[in-house]
Amino acid sequence: MSSTVSAIQRSALGFVLVLVIFGTLPLVVSSYQMSIANEILIFALLAMSIDVLAGYAGRTSLGHGALFGISTYVVIYWTSVYGGSAWVGCLLGVVVATLVAAIFAAFAVRVSGVYFLLLTLALGMIVWGVCLRWTSITGGENGIRGVGRPDLIASPTAFYYATLAVVLLMTFLIWRFVRSPFGLTLRGIRDSESRMRSLGYGTSAHMFVAFTVTGFFAGVAGALYALFNNFVSPSTVQLSQSVEGLLMAIIGGIGTLFGSFIGAAAIIMLENFVSAYTARWQMVLGVMFIVTMIFAPQGILGTLRMLLIRKR
């Protein structure tokens, strides 16, 4: 049981680090850098939702960017076109993302491996196509402009702390989720689906629930993004959104949860700070990804964890 205790200690350390680092940032950085940190938090949540499937259930999804974006669309549409309240909009966004995730899940539970990847990719492309073509609702590739945040979280600092609170809460829920009996069944399905079935598990039902739940978390991230960006267009649901979320999870370390914060920070900071020096920043990103794959295939946090365990 000693390993369980130290795992809990590690996770507690993760929470404390996230809280301290992100909690004190606004005191020391400019408003722009705070907005970058805000974005990092939102994308870390998206990356975590992908990590639950990739790292625990062994299913690499390329559809979660679309689920994220659906929530963003719903929030922006609800507030700016329909004129509804942002709070209700966020609720609706998350609900719709979760429902669409359930529809995705109904298809995706039937497959695994590269077929799962391709199927989620195709489902995501359908969402993108709909957002692009259904011009009367989505505004086509011009997108929809938002109406700004509610007064309570209108200031960047207030919104930043609101995001931090929500993301921490979601992180805690995800953490509980992957450590629950249900979370264990996902790791079982990853290792051997046939054994799970012969033990009496309806693996499809488990994958369905897991996919839908991760869709919920992606939806929460998407709703936050709507409030943050105040704008939505098909690029928010496009494939590169899913790929970026996946890269963040991979660079941070698949199956580590907290690695998503590191991965999101690495990629978003690279995009924003390196691009100030060179237009070839995408190449830098590519090189960084390759280097990670070769020298730290378990990601930054995964490798650190391995080194620590080895030392002991």
């Binding site: 400019s30 408003s31 722009y32 974005e39 997108g143 960006n229 267009s233 691009s275």
Partner: peptide, 19 residues
């Protein structure tokens, strides 16, 4: 560089204005 992507453009606009 806005990379032809609205989300990137928004990010860069923020950087230019706020930083």
């Amino acid at each position: 560089d806005d990379a032809g992507n609205p989300d990137t453009a928004l990010q860069k606009a923020r950087r230019l204005v706020e930083q």
